[in-house]
Computed example of a mutant assay.
Amino acid sequence: MNYGYGRVSTNKQELGLQIKALKDAGATKIYKEKISGAKAERKELNNLLKEIKAGDTLIVTKADRIARSLSQLERIVTELTSRGVAVHILNMGIFTAQNMDNPMTKLLFNVLGAFAEFERSMILERTQEGIKDAKEKGVKFGRKSKAFKIEGSLLHAILQVEGGKMSQPEGAEFAGCSIATFKRRLKEYRESNNEGG
């Protein structure tokens, strides 16, 4: 049986192109997941590695779909080929127990695997440089803070604190929230009033 394995690093990325390439290459059962290659626990890959048996073929589009380093790639491919599984990496070739014993194939495998690892580290480096550059230009990363409506008892308590008629702990108690939350809302209130003024 021909098994395919497709992986993308984040939920925002799509698997469509990989799935099509795997089907075109003859994969009849495809395992797929959206998880970083840096994560050791890849549930779908682990399930596939348990299920695949002698006479089967594992098809992946690129080496970095199943491994994050040359040593990990070599370990997975060697383990599978020694079990009688053929590994077809579409941009590298087909590896079997027979040709993995051939010094030329082994050399080619290591060279191509090293290029894949190099490419992955270059992408990582470019990504980190891009993030650093964006941060220097003032781009904010992470979730946007939720905008809260300051109204009702909270607004009343803030106005009392601002007017010097209540302490912050009294304001928090009146508004029915923690002191930390009250202080955050008070800060937001002051900031929005400064922007408006």
Rank of each mutant, 00 (worst) to 15 (best):
1 M>K: 15
1 M>E: 15
1 M>N: 15
6 G>V: 01
7 R>T: 09
8 V>I: 10
8 V>S: 04
8 V>K: 03
9 S>T: 10
10 T>W: 02
10 T>N: 08
11 N>P: 02
12 K>E: 10
15 L>W: 00
17 L>S: 08
17 L>W: 03
27 A>S: 03
28 T>L: 06
32 K>A: 14
32 K>E: 11
32 K>M: 10
34 K>Q: 04
35 I>N: 02
35 I>C: 02
36 S>H: 03
37 G>Y: 01
38 A>D: 00
40 A>E: 05
40 A>T: 03
42 R>N: 02
42 R>Q: 05
44 E>R: 10
44 E>A: 15
47 N>P: 01
47 N>Y: 00
47 N>W: 00
49 L>F: 04
50 K>I: 00
52 I>C: 04
53 K>I: 01
59 I>A: 02
60 V>C: 02
61 T>M: 04
62 K>F: 06
63 A>M: 11
64 D>A: 08
64 D>W: 06
65 R>S: 13
65 R>C: 09
65 R>H: 08
67 A>L: 01
67 A>G: 01
68 R>I: 11
69 S>D: 09
69 S>C: 10
69 S>L: 13
70 L>W: 05
73 L>K: 03
74 E>T: 14
75 R>W: 07
75 R>S: 14
76 I>N: 02
77 V>F: 00
78 T>M: 11
79 E>V: 06
79 E>G: 08
81 T>Q: 07
81 T>Y: 05
86 A>R: 14
86 A>D: 11
88 H>V: 03
89 I>C: 07
94 I>T: 14
95 F>W: 04
96 T>N: 06
98 Q>D: 10
99 N>S: 07
101 D>S: 15
101 D>I: 03
102 N>T: 00
104 M>I: 06
106 K>F: 09
108 L>G: 15
109 F>S: 11
111 V>M: 10
114 A>D: 00
116 A>P: 02
117 E>D: 01
117 E>S: 07
118 F>K: 13
120 R>A: 04
121 S>A: 00
123 I>G: 04
124 L>A: 04
125 E>T: 08
126 R>V: 03
126 R>F: 05
126 R>S: 09
132 K>V: 13
135 K>M: 14
141 F>Y: 09
141 F>M: 12
142 G>I: 13
143 R>A: 13
145 S>P: 07
145 S>I: 13
147 A>T: 12
148 F>C: 09
149 K>G: 02
150 I>R: 06
157 A>R: 04
158 I>H: 05
158 I>R: 09
159 L>E: 14
163 G>H: 00
164 G>F: 00
164 G>W: 03
165 K>Q: 12
166 M>I: 07
167 S>M: 06
168 Q>E: 12
169 P>H: 13
169 P>A: 08
170 E>R: 11
170 E>C: 04
172 A>K: 08
175 A>Q: 11
175 A>P: 02
177 C>K: 06
178 S>N: 15
179 I>T: 12
179 I>S: 15
184 R>A: 11
185 R>L: 15
193 N>A: 15
194 N>Q: 12
195 E>Q: 13
196 G>F: 05
196 G>Y: 06
